[in-house]
Amino acid sequence: MYNLIGAGLIVIGGGIGLGQIGGKAMEGIARQPEAAGKIQTAMIIIGALLEGLAFGALLLA
């Protein structure tokens, strides 16, 4: 039961984080379309780091 609540909290946290990353990247690309490639790569890396964190927590939950 508690681990399910924990899993839910992790998903909420991860979702907020991914939303922030994605949103800011979109803003960045809209402001500077020529830097889209670089922004995308950086976005994927940060997303992956966040994902690693969230999955690690999910395994423990």
Binding site: A48, L49, E51, G52, L53, F55, G56, L58, L59
Partner: peptide
């Protein structure tokens, strides 16, 4: 290394 292995495995 832990985040590397967990990410791939869990995905």
């Amino acid at each position: 290394p832990f985040s590397l292995l967990v990410r791939l495995f869990a995905n």
